[in-house]
């Protein structure tokens, strides 16, 4: 565990707390893509299946259980508690365009051709692109609530912080995990546009608005 990973994981935790806080305080899930949130449930379930047969550490166990349960809770909030505030006509990205190719890629590019390894690899690829429905939705509406942008900034920062962690681990442990690294760089890259607007507008006190 190094400082970059710890900060990355804390950013990930923070993003979830921000999202739940947004939904509870505004009593709404407006501006949040249900599809992206559903993809995260799939990501966590396929990646953390090792909970059933491996013990790594208490930290690792608690975080995995938290990510699975909180992502399920978010889906519940969107699907039941705040359902009337969700507008499916804005959430139109086709997730099969993400899930299908990620699964095929996981079948081809993996470390071992085993069920759990393929599921892990699939989860890494899917996580990299799971934000697409959310970004697509914001592109359509051209705006986002400030709290939603804080959520996305924390979520993007999480994987971005894993990159210096991988560099650190390369120099201290000599290990490289090419699947995670390549997917992590792609994932972070997808946020660059968003980060630009976040830093130049939201952090200057302006509303998040995309040019028409």
């Amino acid at each position: 565990m190094n400082i970059f990973r710890l900060l990355g994981d804390l950013a990930h935790l923070a993003s979830i707390f921000i999202l739940v806080h947004k939904m509870h305080t505004t009593r709404s899930c407006r501006g949040i893509s249900f599809k992206t949130q559903a993809l995260y449930v799939l990501v966590f379930l396929t990646r953390y299946i090792d909970l059933l047969y491996t013990w790594i550490s208490l930290y690792n166990f608690v975080m995995k259980v938290f990510f699975i349960s909180s992502s399920g809770y978010i889906l519940y909030l969107m699907k039941y508690r705040f359902r009337p505030t969700h507008d499916p006509s804005l959430d139109t990205f086709k997730v099969e365009y993400l899930v299908g190719p990620c699964f095929v890629l996981a079948l081809i590019f993996n470390y071992r051709f085993e069920v759990t390894e393929i599921l892990w690899t699939f989860s890494i690829y899917l996580e990299a692109v799971a934000i697409f429905p959310q970004l697509f939705m914001m592109q359509r509406t051209g705006e986002a609530e400030t709290i939603t942008t804080h959520y996305l900034a924390a979520l993007g920062a999480y994987r971005a912080l894993y990159i210096p962690n991988w560099i650190y681990r390369y120099f201290t442990e000599g290990t490289v995990d090419p699947i995670a690294v390549v997917a992590g760089i792609v994932q972070t890259g997808l946020y660059l546009d968003f980060f630009y607007v976040y830093v130049t507008k939201v952090l200057q006190g302006q509303k998040f608005e995309l040019p028409a």
């Binding site: 550490s57 690792n60 975080m63 995995k64 470390y111 390894e117 892990w120």
Partner: peptide
């Protein structure tokens, strides 16, 4: 040999 992936990462 196991895969080169970091099993301890989230």
């Amino acid at each position: 040999a196991g895969p080169p992936r970091a099993h301890d990462e989230l």
